[in-house]
Simulated scan of single mutants.
Amino acid sequence: MSDETKTSNPWMHELRHLYGAGILLFYYAKWPILIGWPVMRFVLEYKDNWIIDALWLWCLILVFKDFYVWFVLKESYCKSKSCKPKELSDGNHAQNQN
């Protein structure tokens, strides 16, 4: 990216910061929101909140995406390439020197 585009579009810099903050927020908060909101709603009898409901649905979508990536894509990757560590697959095993 040239210096011209950096100075002419300061909003892109801020949007990148917001995007990064959103990734970190949902990376660490998706499981507490996914499990905690139903507990708060039905066990602790909190009032309905459509904003938290939307966040809960978004976290549910992210968890389904994670399961898809972890199980489906990893399995297809392991079928196409060896998933063994390099030192085990090339036959060059390190010896213990105790």
Rank of each mutant, 00 (worst) to 15 (best):
E4A: 04
A21F: 00
Y77R: 09
W56F: 04
Q95N: 04
W58E: 02
F67L: 15
W70E: 15
V63W: 01
Q97A: 08
I23H: 13
S76K: 15
S89T: 04
W37D: 01
L88T: 03
G36A: 08
G91T: 01
K47D: 15
K65D: 06
L18V: 05
Q97Y: 08
H93T: 05
Y27P: 02
F26N: 09
S8C: 06
P32N: 03
L60P: 07
R41N: 08
P32K: 06
Y68D: 10
K30A: 04
P85V: 13
C59T: 10
D48C: 05
W56G: 03
C59I: 05
D90V: 11
L73R: 12
F71D: 08
G91N: 03
S76G: 06
W31P: 01
M40P: 01
V39F: 00
R41E: 03
G20V: 09
E4L: 09
S82Q: 05
V69I: 09
L62F: 01
Y68I: 03
L73Q: 11
V72I: 14
S82T: 13
R41F: 06
I52E: 02
I35F: 14
T5K: 15
D48P: 01
A54Q: 04
K6H: 07
S89I: 08
A54K: 05
M12H: 15
N49E: 14
E45L: 00
K84E: 13
Y27L: 15
Y77Q: 10
N92Y: 08
H13Y: 12
W37C: 01
L18R: 06
N92D: 12
P32E: 01
Y28V: 15
D90H: 06
L88S: 03
T7N: 12
E14T: 05
L18K: 02
N49I: 13
M12E: 14
I33Y: 01
E87P: 04
L62A: 07
M40W: 02
Y68L: 12
V72W: 15
A54N: 07
T7Y: 06
V63P: 02
K86E: 03
V63F: 03
L18S: 00
K65V: 12
L62M: 06
V43N: 00
E14K: 05
I23V: 12
Y77P: 06
R41S: 08
N96T: 11
A54S: 09
W50V: 15
R41T: 05
S76W: 15
I33H: 05
N49M: 13
D66Q: 07
N49G: 07
L24G: 07
I51K: 10
K86C: 00
C78A: 14
I23Q: 11
P10F: 02
K86W: 06
P10Q: 00
G36M: 06
K65W: 10
H13V: 07
V69G: 03
F42V: 00
Y77V: 05
A54T: 10
P10R: 07
V63Y: 00
K30H: 06
D48Y: 04
R16Y: 06
K47L: 08
T5Q: 14
F42Q: 02
Y19D: 13
F67G: 14
F26I: 11
P85C: 11
C83G: 05
F42E: 00
E4W: 03
E4I: 07
V63C: 04
N96C: 07
S8P: 04
V69T: 09
D66P: 02
M1P: 12
